[in-house]
Design a protein around this nucleic acid. Structure first.
Length: 560
DNA sequence: AGTTTCATATGG
DNA sequence: CTCGCCATATGAAACT
């Protein structure tokens, strides 16, 4: 059963129960308290909620303590369907869907809100900026839903597309929940990390002591009083005065320069970065009551990966992860999908030799043993180079070996690249479609240009990265459903890594649930396949203690 | 003064 | 690992 739901902008709303065909399955209701009504329906029937946009309606339900199991997010699904039809970027609201269907002028979507740190939010601002709704919109939502169902049925693989739709909608629920719950964050530990790396904070808002000392040492070493090492232009001029002409001041460039100031500059850069991006100012804006609450944006990246709005949640530096600490009596279950993209390539291409390697715990090692004389690093570089469209550098011989030894996998990415170079569209396994090229015209003869080659690299990588993203999204959806029975909650998701905050007593159950979710995601996407999607799962007090590797020790002994 | 682009870092 | 892919965020520099 489905229940279409809409809020009226002031706490109340409308509900309309319907069946899969859109026929009434109960009386439409005008409710004075939408959250309370949703809570009653969820407890009694666990329907699939049908609404225009999870990111608009669900945060208010969460604030009222209401959670739901499943939904269909019309706006996110419309983005998928528009992309599938090659109409990327057109308006996605219910009103836009109906207008397109009826041949009326299509209204524009409202602009997304700007990034807003939670500690600067004004209470009630959301309610004031949204015009109150006076008419029941649930009938139109149902109509839009039925229109979408028809278009989904007309895709090349409707079953796959339905899985994508379900996963995308579940992701939207989870994104709102994680933004609401927040990531456990110890401000005292964060302070200690900052003080250790940067020195005591300057009371006047200037550089902290250790950074200021480093800047002074750099100025002395370059005989440039007052030099600000955070200014690339000043730094280049100072090095030029010392007889060293730099093309830029990147860390990698500096590492090749023999001068006493270089190690100081490198140290300054590393620490200055943490000071500006994840220092005290960031903490004051984004962390409160022991939780970091970023705003996740499902589908915010063209490949289907999530983005975040403000807070830099997907770029937390390794050093700062020490501040992510489980509550007393709780643990963080950290699960990381190792070697995900090459495993995806094996699954989608059907290359039997690559699939054999992807059936082991360490794909790169198996590949190395099979085709690279045991050189694991070469095997890894070859695969990454093939998936990214690398055309230069030291990995070229290894890429040539890959091309010859794994021709089916090679042809898969080559085909995607050719399509892109010609201005065509490519799709992920479940049917997410890449945006069209801004410059290439598929109706014209192919051109050979740097733009065409860049487009080829993009589409080549898209088919892999987008499928990897939907595997991860499917895992999340499955795991979220399994964790509903536990006190444990998902608190963080970063492309191929998830964090679950769990009471100690639930840790074994949660670790098993994560592994099962990974296996289930593989089955849901690819059915019976020899490719495995192993997870490295650890339970830790502190995020920084979860070691990151690209190797997955399996079984009882070490290989070789 | 306000806005846009560049340079450089972080993450996968 | 400069590479080849996808991002966000900051401050400086360069503009309107």
């Amino acid at each position: 059963m489905l229940v279409a739901a809409a809020d009226d902008g002031s706490g109340g709303g409308w509900l309309r129960p319907v069946d899969e065909a859109g026929a009434p399955a109960g009386a439409p209701e005008r409710v004075p308290d939408l959250a309370a009504a949703v809570r009653r329906w969820e407890a009694a029937h666990r329907p699939r909620w049908l609404w225009e946009a999870t990111n608009l309606i669900y945060p208010r339900l969460l604030a009222a303590g209401v959670r739901v199991g499943r939904c269909h997010d019309v706006t996110l699904v419309e983005a998928l369907l528009l992309g599938y039809a090659g109409r990327w970027g057109e308006p996605r609201s219910v009103a836009a869907i109906l207008a397109r269907r009826d041949g009326r002028p299509v209204p524009r979507d409202p602009p997304p809100p700007p990034p807003c740190p939670p500690n600067q939010q004004q209470q009630g601002s959301l309610f004031e900026t949204v015009a109150p709704v006076r008419e029941d919109p649930t009938g139109e939502i149902v109509t839009a839903y039925l229109d979408q169902q028809a278009r989904i049925a007309a895709t090349a693989h409707p079953g796959r597309f339905r899985l994508l739709v379900a996963a995308e909608s579940a992701g939207a629920l989870l994104a709102a929940e994680m933004g609401h719950d927040g990531l456990p964050w110890r401000t005292d530990v964060h302070d200690a990390v900052l003080t250790e790396l940067l020195g005591p904070r300057s009371p006047m808002g200037g550089l902290p002591r250790r950074l200021a000392e480093l800047a002074a040492e750099i100025a002395t070493a370059l005989d440039s009083p007052g030099l600000r090492p955070d200014s690339p232009a000043e730094l280049r001029r100072a090095f030029a005065r010392a007889g060293i002409n730099l093309p830029d001041t990147r860390a990698w460039t500096l590492r090749g320069v023999d001068h006493p100031a270089v190690p100081l500059v490198l140290e300054f850069k590393e620490r200055y970065r943490i000071f500006t991006a994840h220092g005290w100012a960031w903490q004051e804006a984004w962390v409160h009551h022991g939780r970091f609450r970023p705003e996740y944006v499902p589908g915010g990246v063209v490949s289907g990966r999530w983005a975040t709005r403000g807070g830099g949640a997907l770029q937390i530096p390794k050093a700062v992860r020490r501040a992510v600490v489980a509550d007393d009596g709780w643990r963080l279950v950290v699960a990381d999908a190792g070697q995900l993209e090459p495993r995806i390539l094996a699954a989608v291409s059907g290359d039997p030799r690559l699939q054999a390697a992807a059936g082991t715990g360490d794909l790169y090692a198996a590949l190395a043993a099979e085709s690279f004389a045991g050189d694991r690093a070469a095997a890894k570089l070859a695969l990454l180079g093939a998936m990214y469209g690398q055309t230069g550098g030291a990995a070229l011989p290894a890429i040539a070996v890959l091309r010859q030894r794994y021709p089916i996998a090679w042809r898969y990415v080559e085909q995607a690249a050719r399509t892109g170079e010609a201005g065509g569209l490519v799709r992920s396994w479940l049917g997410r479609t890449c945006p069209p090229s801004a410059t290439l015209d598929p109706t014209q003869p192919p051109v050979r240009s740097e733009a065409a080659r860049a487009r080829g690299r993009f589409t080549r990588n898209f088919v892999i990265q987008a499928t990897a993203a939907e595997w991860a999204l499917t895992l999340l959806a499955v795991l979220r459903a399994r964790l509903a029975a536990y006190a444990a909650t998902l608190v963080f998701f970063q492309h191929d890594e998830v964090l679950v905050h769990a009471p100690e007593s639930e840790v074994p159950l949660v670790m098993a649930a994560v592994r099962e979710a990974a296996a289930e995601a593989g089955r849901l996407l690819f059915g019976a396949t020899p490719v495995r999607f192993p997870l490295e799962v650890t339970a830790v007090r502190c995020y920084a203690d979860a070691r990151a590797t690209d190797r997955l020790p399996e079984g009882t002994g070490t290989p070789g």
